[in-house]
Amino acid sequence: NQASVVANQLIPINTALTLVMMRSEVVTPVGIPAEDIPRLVGMQVNRAVPLGTTLMPDMVKGYA
Rank of each mutant, 00 (worst) to 15 (best):
Met59Val: 04
Met22Thr: 03
Glu25Val: 03
Val41Lys: 06
Gln44Val: 08
Val60Arg: 01
Ser24Ile: 08
Val45Trp: 00
Glu35Lys: 03
Leu40His: 01
Val6Arg: 04
Pro33Leu: 09
Ala3Ile: 10
Met43Thr: 09
Ile11Trp: 01
Asn8Asp: 14
Ile37Cys: 03
Ser4Lys: 02
Met43Val: 06
Leu51Ala: 12
Leu17Asn: 00
Asp36Gln: 09
Ile37Arg: 07
Gly52Ser: 14
Lys61Trp: 09
Leu19Tyr: 14
Thr54His: 12
Leu51Pro: 09
Lys61Val: 11
Thr54Val: 05
Ile32Tyr: 02
Ser24His: 15
Glu25Thr: 05
Leu51Phe: 13
Asn14Cys: 07
Ile13Arg: 05
Ile13Met: 08
Ala48Asp: 15
Glu25Pro: 01
Met21Lys: 04
Val6Ser: 03
Val41Tyr: 11
Leu40Gly: 00
Asn8Gly: 13
Ala16Thr: 07
Leu19Asp: 02
Ala3Asp: 14
Val41Leu: 12
Pro50Tyr: 13
Ile13Ala: 06
Asp58Leu: 08
Ser4Ile: 02
Pro12His: 11
Thr54Leu: 10
Thr54Gln: 04
Thr54Asp: 01
Gln44Phe: 14
Met21Asp: 03
Ile13Ser: 08
Pro57Arg: 11
Met59Arg: 04
Met22Ile: 12
Thr28Trp: 03
Glu25Ile: 03
Asn46Glu: 10
Gly31Ala: 09
Gln9Asn: 08
Thr28Phe: 03
Arg39Glu: 03
Ser4Val: 15
Ala7Glu: 00
Pro33Thr: 08
Pro12Thr: 06
Thr54Cys: 02
Leu17Glu: 00
Gly52Phe: 09
Thr54Lys: 06
Gly42Ser: 11
Ser4Arg: 02
Thr53Arg: 12
Ala3Cys: 15
Met59Tyr: 12
Leu55Phe: 08
Thr54Gly: 05
Gly62Ala: 07
Val26His: 05
Ala48Cys: 11
Thr28Cys: 13
Val45Cys: 03
Ile37Phe: 08
Thr18Asn: 02
Ala34Tyr: 08
Asn8Cys: 03
Ile11Tyr: 01
Val26Asn: 09
Met59Ile: 07
Met56Asp: 10
Gln2Trp: 07
Val27Ser: 04
Met21Gly: 02
Ala64Arg: 04
Ser24Val: 10
Val27Cys: 03
Ala3Met: 13
Arg39Gln: 06
Glu25Trp: 06
Val6His: 04
Pro57Tyr: 07
Ala34Lys: 06
Pro33Arg: 11
Leu19His: 08
Val27Ile: 05
Ile13Lys: 04
Ala7Val: 12
Pro33Gln: 09
Leu51Cys: 15
Ile13Cys: 04
Leu19Trp: 07
Arg39His: 08
Gly52Ala: 15
Val26Trp: 10
Leu51Tyr: 12
Val41Gln: 15
Thr15Leu: 04
Gly42Phe: 07
Val26Phe: 04
Pro38Thr: 04
Val45Pro: 04
Met43Glu: 04
Ala48Gln: 09
Gln9Glu: 11
Ile37Gln: 14
Leu55Asn: 00
Val60Tyr: 01
Asp36Gly: 09
Arg39Pro: 03
Gly31Cys: 02
Arg39Leu: 08
Arg23Ala: 04
Gln44Gly: 07
Val60Trp: 01
Thr53His: 15
Tyr63Thr: 04
Glu25His: 08
Met56Gln: 09
Gln2Tyr: 07
Leu51Met: 15
Thr18Leu: 05
Asn14Thr: 06
Asp36Ile: 15
Val30Tyr: 13
Pro29Arg: 02
Val60His: 01
Met22Gly: 00
Arg47Thr: 10
Gln2Ser: 13
Val60Thr: 02
Ala16Met: 12
Ile32His: 01
Asn1Met: 15
Gly62Phe: 08
Val20Cys: 09
Val27Gln: 09
Leu55Val: 09
Pro12Met: 12
Met21Ser: 05
Thr28Pro: 03
Met21Cys: 02
Ala64Val: 12
Gly42His: 06
Pro33Glu: 04
Glu35Pro: 12
Gln9His: 13
Met59Thr: 05
Gln9Leu: 10
Asn8Gln: 12
Arg23Leu: 05
Gly31Met: 05
Thr54Ile: 10
Leu40Trp: 02
Leu40Ser: 01
Val45Gln: 00
Pro57Val: 06
Tyr63Gln: 03
Pro38Cys: 14
Ile32Gln: 01
Thr28Glu: 15
Asn8Leu: 12
Pro57Asn: 10
Glu25Asp: 14
Val5Lys: 00
Pro38His: 12
Ala64Tyr: 02
Val20Trp: 11
Pro57Thr: 14
Tyr63Asp: 03
Ala34Pro: 10
Ile37Gly: 13
Pro29Cys: 14
Val27Pro: 03
Asp36Tyr: 07
Asn14Arg: 05
Ser4His: 02
Leu10Ile: 14
Asp58Thr: 13
Pro29Phe: 15
Pro33Met: 10
Ile37Ala: 15
Val5Gly: 04
Thr53Tyr: 13
Ser4Thr: 10
Val20Gly: 10
Met43Ile: 06
Arg47Asn: 05
Ala64Glu: 11
Ala16Leu: 15
Pro57Gly: 07
Pro12Trp: 09
Pro57Leu: 06
Arg23Thr: 04
Ile37Glu: 06
Ala7Gln: 01
Gln2Pro: 15
Ala48Pro: 05
Val30Ser: 11
Pro12Tyr: 08
Pro12Ser: 05
Leu51Val: 06
Ile11Arg: 01
Val27Trp: 04
Pro29Thr: 13
Val60Ile: 13
Glu35Met: 06
Asn46Ile: 13
Ala3Trp: 04
Leu10Arg: 06
Thr18Val: 05
Pro33Asp: 10
Asp58Tyr: 10
Glu35Trp: 03
Pro29Lys: 06
Asp58Gly: 09
Glu35Ala: 07
Gly42Thr: 12
Val45Thr: 14
Ala48Tyr: 12
Met56Val: 10
Thr18Asp: 02
Gln9Thr: 07
Glu35Asn: 10
Ile13Glu: 08
Val20Lys: 14
Met59Ser: 08
Val6Ile: 13
Thr15Trp: 11
Gly42Arg: 07
Pro38Phe: 12
Leu17Gly: 00
Ile32Ser: 02
Lys61Leu: 13
Leu55Lys: 01
Val6Ala: 05
Val26Leu: 14
Pro50Met: 10
Ile13Pro: 04
Arg23Gly: 04
Arg47Met: 11
Ile11Met: 12
Arg47Gly: 05
Ile11Ser: 00
Asn1Cys: 14
Lys61Asn: 10
Val60Ser: 01
Val5His: 00
Glu25Phe: 04
Val49Arg: 04
Val5Gln: 01
Gln44His: 05
Arg47Ser: 10
Ala7Trp: 01
Tyr63Trp: 13
Glu35Cys: 15
Thr53Pro: 00
Met21Phe: 13
Leu40Ala: 02
Gly62Tyr: 11
Leu17Phe: 12
Val20Asn: 06
Thr28His: 06
Pro57Gln: 12
Asn1Gly: 15
Val49Ser: 04
Gly31Leu: 01
Thr18His: 03
Val60Met: 13
Val5Ser: 07
Val30Ile: 14
Pro38Asn: 14
Gln44Ala: 13
